[in-house]
Structure formats: C-alpha cells, structure tokens
C-alpha cells in the first residue's frame, strides 16, 4: 500500500502521459488531469469521499489524444463502467492503466454497492458488501395495478432535469432518445409515463453497472437504482449476462448470436 501522490508519480514515470483523478480544492472535489510530477494539482490530489464518473471525461480525453496513455483512479464501479465502455468502443483499455481504490466499509454500506472494490486494489482495504434488494422485493410483492400506481407516483416527481442521464457513466450517445420529440414530448413536466423513464431503463439493460450515481443525483429521490438493478437482474435471468464483469463477453443485445441461443431462450 502506498499513498496516492507516490502512485501518481510512479504511473507517470512508468509511461502514462497523464493521470486522471480527483483533487480537493477549497473543500470541493473536482476532476484533475495531472500531466507531470511538478504539477501544483499533485499536492491537492485526493481520493475523496464523493464519487465522480471520471470515465465520461476519459472518453473525450482518449479521443482527443489518440496516441497518449492515461492512468486513471478507479473505484469498483468505475472499473466496471470502463470495461463495459470498452466493449461499446468508447474507451481503449490498452491505453489505460487503472489504479484501483477500494471503498471504505462505510462508503460501501451507504452506497449499497454489489462489489465495492476493483479487481486490483492499490489503495485502501477490500471490504465485502451485501447490496439491498428491499425496494425491488417490495415492488414485486404488489399486484400489477398497485405496482403501476407505485411507479407512476414515484415518476410523477420527476422534474426532467436529465440528471440521471448526465451523471450516468454508461450514457455517451450524441443523439439521446430522451431528447427525441417523437418519443418524449418536449416541455411536459413531469415527463409522460411510461416513455421517459422506461426508455432510459431499457437502454440500461446490459449496460447498467449498478453504480447508483443516478439515484444519488436525482433531486426528486426517484428509486432509479432499483429500476435499473431490476434491469440487470432481467438481463442475467433471461440472457445470462451481467454488465461490467468480463472484458471479452459482449452484451447479447449488441450482436445477433446463434440459433441455438434463441431456441434455448424460447424453450424457457
């Protein structure tokens, strides 16, 4: 175990052209790109308690500097996001060095993370966590009509701020279906049910890596994470796929597959 500053120096010496992490400035966490060991940002670099989808910045950085290598500070969720993004051709893992941070027990519990550590931990101690499924179980125990009423009520608080989409590490499309006036009528608040939220939920199938940033960002406290977590379960139950687990296996919704797969699906 070493501290963040020496890790940054080490990675910059080892061939990374820049280190993407967070810095703490006047009590606020901000993303920072450290390109040399003399940078004043190095002194401010911090793991911090807050989470930040650094992957979103990384997508742009990798594209803008196609011949540079980057090191990046990742928590468990960031790593899952980067793995999934690489399969969606958004990041190039060969040009990335991930420096893993394990979340503290307190953080892991507060966030309800399924795996609060990356595959290689350079900072912090691994702790296990047991993600809660209470909300999903509660919703599932209701009848169809009650369930619909429950979701309608939750979604009726939506102010259509797009915070869930903007914070989502897996959202990168230039043309967003949520801004398509044929699918979601502009200027209607709360957005019509089911279009807005169900479109987002469907897009999360095979993509959501369960970081929970959407729910954290939501100003209306809509239980988005439970919805997307259920999408993850559906993908696993029906198509046997879990996002962010393996760098090779692609989401079944991203390729056609074989006849055997489909016949198997139909028999179930």
């Amino acid at each position: 175990m070493s501290d963040l500053k020496s890790l940054i120096k080490e990675k910059l010496n080892d061939g990374a052209d820049a280190f993407l992490c967070l810095k703490e400035e006047e009590g606020t966490l901000l993303p920072a790109l450290i390109t040399d060991a003399d940078s004043p940002d190095l002194e401010l670099a911090a793991v911090g308690e807050a989470r930040y989808p650094l992957g979103k910045i990384l997508i742009d950085l990798l594209r803008e500097y196609p011949d540079k290598r980057f090191a990046v500070l990742v928590r468990g969720c960031d790593e899952r996001a980067l793995i999934e993004l690489s399969k969606l051709e958004q990041v190039d893992l060969d040009r990335l060095v991930m420096v893993g941070v394990a979340c503290t027990e307190e953080e892991a519990r507060a966030c309800g993370c399924p795996r609060p550590y990356p595959s290689e931990v350079a900072l912090g101690e691994k702790v296990e966590a047991a993600p809660g499924r209470e909300t999903i179980a509660e919703v599932e125990s209701l009848s169809d009509a009650e369930r619909l009423r429950w979701w309608k009520e939750e979604f009726s608080r939506c102010i259509k701020c797009y915070g869930c989409r903007n914070i989502c590490p897996m959202c990168f499309c230039k043309d967003c279906a949520l801004e398509n006036p044929h699918l979601v009528e502009p200027g209607v608040i709360p957005p019509e049910f089911p279009s807005f939220h169900v479109i987002r939920a469907l897009d999360m199938a095979g993509r959501c890596i369960d970081c929970g940033l959407c729910e954290e960002a939501c100003p209306a406290d809509i239980p988005l994470r439970s919805l997307y977590r259920r999408m993850q379960e559906i993908m696993e139950e029906k198509l046997g796929y879990r996002a962010g687990e393996s760098a090779e296996e692609k989401s079944p919704l991203s390729f056609l597959g074989s006849e055997q797969d489909i016949k198997k699906l139909e028999r179930e």
Binding site: K238, L239, L256, G257
Partner: peptide
C-alpha cells in the same frame, strides 16, 4: 426463427422481447 429474410433479424427481436416483457411486468403492465 431460421426463416428470417435477413437471416438473423428476428434473433434480435426474440432477445429484446424478453427484456421488454419483463420490464413492463416490473412496472405493472
């Protein structure tokens, strides 16, 4: 399945359908 004019177009339908049906069920339709 197997007779698609575009060979495998309906494979996608079969997969998407599973996800869509379960999603709508979870939402209470």
């Amino acid at each position: 399945i197997g007779d698609c004019h575009y060979l495998k177009g309906n494979y996608m339908t079969a997969k998407r359908f599973q996800v869509l049906r379960e999603t709508l069920k979870f939402l209470g339709l």
